[in-house]
Write a protein that binds this DNA or RNA. Structure first.
Lengths: 231, 231
DNA sequence: AATAAACTTGACCAATTGGTCAGATTGGTT
DNA sequence: AACCAATCTGACCAATTGGTCAAGTTTATT
């Protein structure tokens, strides 16, 4: 994953609208094309990893020549970086709804619901994220150390306050968070294994609902909270 | 990941001892060298993925010329396949101790203990496995459909029987298994993220013990079992 | 209509890399 | 010592692939 900043100099040729998103004129079709590239890239990076995905195949999948892809994203790394950041944003956004200071049971249940929905709607994004982190987060290390770190600390504090108030069992909040992340993302990252063990069938609506229900049930009860009805 | 079976024909040159493990003569040094290659390969595949890892760097890491590596493993894919199978074996072996028909609490606690130990001892193996499954299991699909499938069915049955006997809560056993897999492997696959959120520090003995304790606590209580002392 | 900027693309290149091979070297066996 | 199989290795090759570039075409603006 060698840096080749040299080529970025050529971008000057293209002026502002390419360098950032500040051009509002023809951005409609432009964004549509970028979006198509990003969708194709997300799938390829998820299925083959950074090195395994080729810009040629991504371009094919997006229905454009490879040279055109490089007009929008100067390097493969820039494209990959954008894909990872997009997932990170979705992740964080959903995570925000976690701490709309409700009671712990509602907050955690809502967070798990959201995370399961993301796993269903964006399995490729989740896979790319997992890949990136597994390989040492060469591209998004900054985000881990800043945004994710801060987010985690603040949520740990919320959970700890619930514990201190006696609303839930005494556990290290970070391990609860990890369990929620790991379990919900498992249904995206390991969807191939899950489907193979499901007789080769993808989860239907009922199966997703059942999975979400059981995950919530085990985790909520696991920390001393009651699920839905009772209490 | 194109198959190139042609080159396997050349292996005839090398006779039996290379084709399989049936030669007992000089297998001592031979196996030691193969082991060094496998360790290096496991690390490279874990850090860079199948395509990202190069046989040249694997050979460097193992301290031998690339050509020598290809003497022991005719293709990169054969080497990768061996790495994945090794992890699978470790996985299954540990999983076996799961069903030494104890009570559910002891069985699950023991299984989680073993899985956490594997995550600590073989993080690279776990990563390679995750990578392989995330990319659609192109190499080990057979294992998923046969060995893993059978193992899972039999364990689901055991858990279901506990439920039927009223020993634990009513949940779909498969989701309990997935949660255990996901959570325990998270500490291997996402070790980089976990360490970043741990102020860049690797887990020490105490941290591993605490993680294992909390994971067991949440999951066991989550399915209506009591942890360790009480009950 | 004229002009310039934005966009598109086929052809091309340099670097990387999995795998080959012929010729050494080593080690055991007679 | 002689022999042979096993092991080792530097040099090499063919295929892949990220990225470039010059020559277009389209689109907005005047």
């Amino acid at each position: 994953m060698k840096r080749q900043n040299v080529q970025f100099l050529n971008v000057k040729r293209v002026r502002k609208s390419v360098a950032d998103g500040s051009n509002f004129k023809q951005s409609a079709t432009r964004n549509k094309k970028k979006e198509a590239i990003l969708v194709a890239a997300e799938k390829m990076f998820a299925d083959y990893g950074f090195r395994g995905a080729t810009t040629q195949v991504i371009a094919d999948l997006a229905g454009i020549p490879k040279a055109n892809l490089h007009y929008y994203f100067p390097t493969k790394e820039a494209l990959y970086s954008q894909v990872v950041q997009n997932i990170f944003d979705i992740w964080l956004e959903a995570a925000d709804s976690f701490d709309q200071n409700q009671d712990p049971a509602s907050a955690l249940a809502s967070y798990i619901d959201k995370k399961m929905e993301i796993s269903r709607a964006h399995p490729n994004g989740s896979k790319v994220w997992a890949n990136e982190v597994m390989h040492g987060a060469p591209i998004i290390q900054d985000y881990l150390e800043t945004t994710l770190k801060e987010w985690t600390i603040s949520r740990e504090a919320v959970i700890q306050s619930w514990i201190d108030e006696g609303l839930m069992d005494q556990i290290d909040p970070k391990h609860l968070l990890y369990m929620i992340w790991a379990t919900t993302q498992h249904y995206a990252d390991f969807v191939h294994q899950v489907e193979t063990l499901n007789d080769g069938q993808a989860f239907d609506d009922d199966a997703w609902e059942a999975a979400t229900r059981d995950v919530k049930k085990i985790i909520l009860r696991g920390v001393g909270l009651s699920v839905g009805d009772d209490k």
